[in-house]
Amino acid sequence: MLYCLDSFTLGQSKSVPESSFLSQQHPQSIHDHGLTMLTSILAAAGLSLPVVLADLGLQDNGSLSIVDFLRILESFSIELRDESLHMSKRPLLPGTNDHVLANLSRCETLLDALQQLASSYNFIHGGAYNRVEVKDREVVYVIDDHDFPYLDDSSSEHIRFNLECVLLYVHGVICSLSHPQQADLIKVQSRIPSKQQSLLLAAFPNLPIRHTASCYALHYPVELAKIKLCSEQNIPLTSAQVYSGLQQYLLVEPDSHENLLTKVRSALKAGLHSQEAVADCLGCSVATLRRKLADCNSSFRKAREKFLNQEAKILLSQQMNLDDIAHKLGFSDSRSFNRAFKAWNGMTPRDFVDNQ
């Protein structure tokens, strides 16, 4: 079944004024089914949605934006220490996605990057589940999961839900490597049986979305293949930047609270540990950064501590020694890192490793 909203027919858009198109392109929030699925996934790991929302500074108001939903999954994967969200028999250690993204910096065009992305994940998962097809008028990123090594207790409903999240993430990668306005999707396809259950409808309300398809896919104009990677990126590509790029594509207000926090996390990820350096990176004064973070009910100290805690858990999961972690995260020595980690988590780094 192919589902098309009013402004589009399959493979061909009607003439719509740019301002009208932009207003229609604004994403919707996810409600009933999406929240039910998210609550179920969290509950299986012993977590509750209200607690997770509060930890991320989000409101529990019965709906959730697509970007906030992806933030929850990102945070959830760190807590599980498995970026496959316990779906795969080959778990992905925290930091796997950032490692894959770092290798894309060697690519010259978006086509090169997409092919590298597909190849990297195929290598990690041990099978040819991702591929890039170049046709006369389209470039298509395809995910065919028919023989994927899912865990035996993974429900088909959770799997389909997770794969739509992967499609959103891949699109975020494309947005981050170019400019969001260049990442011009033509259509999307999913194995979800009905549009009411799809996250994609909320993210792309004006795109043709084919449900009950044989695989998952993102369709772009063939011109995308020749686009050079964005040369304006001064910060190495990370998952945080991917979510930021996705926000820009989904037309979240550029000065929104979440966009600011994402930019701060990206700067911290690049090794800018002082408030002055981060403010300079964002093109504002320290006073302005402090005021804007206060508007988000946050502070530079809170944002930095949360970032360092997440990074520390990733590095500990990768079995890096404490001295190297302390140096990488900007601590004077391992004792200072130990004290900070215990203050954040109520346990020492060694206790954290032993409990894995």
Rank of each mutant, 00 (worst) to 15 (best):
S20V: 15
Q24D: 11
Q25Y: 11
Q28Y: 05
L35Y: 06
L38W: 01
L42W: 03
G46I: 04
L49E: 08
D55Q: 15
S65D: 07
I72N: 05
F76I: 02
I78Y: 14
R81E: 10
P94W: 09
P94S: 08
L101I: 07
C107P: 01
A113L: 06
A118F: 00
N122I: 01
R131I: 00
E138F: 00
V139T: 00
V140P: 00
V142K: 00
S155M: 06
F161K: 03
V166I: 12
Y169G: 09
H171P: 05
H179P: 00
A183W: 02
A183N: 03
I192Q: 12
L200Q: 05
A202P: 02
P208A: 11
H219I: 00
P221T: 03
I227A: 13
S239Y: 03
Y249S: 06
Y249P: 01
P254A: 04
D255G: 06
R265F: 08
S266L: 07
A270C: 05
G271T: 03
G271E: 09
L272R: 13
S274Q: 10
Q275V: 06
A287V: 14
R291A: 07
R291S: 11
S299Q: 12
F307S: 07
G330Y: 09
G330K: 11
N338E: 11
A340R: 14
W344E: 06
M347G: 07
R350A: 11
R350Y: 08
D351M: 13
V353K: 10
D354C: 12
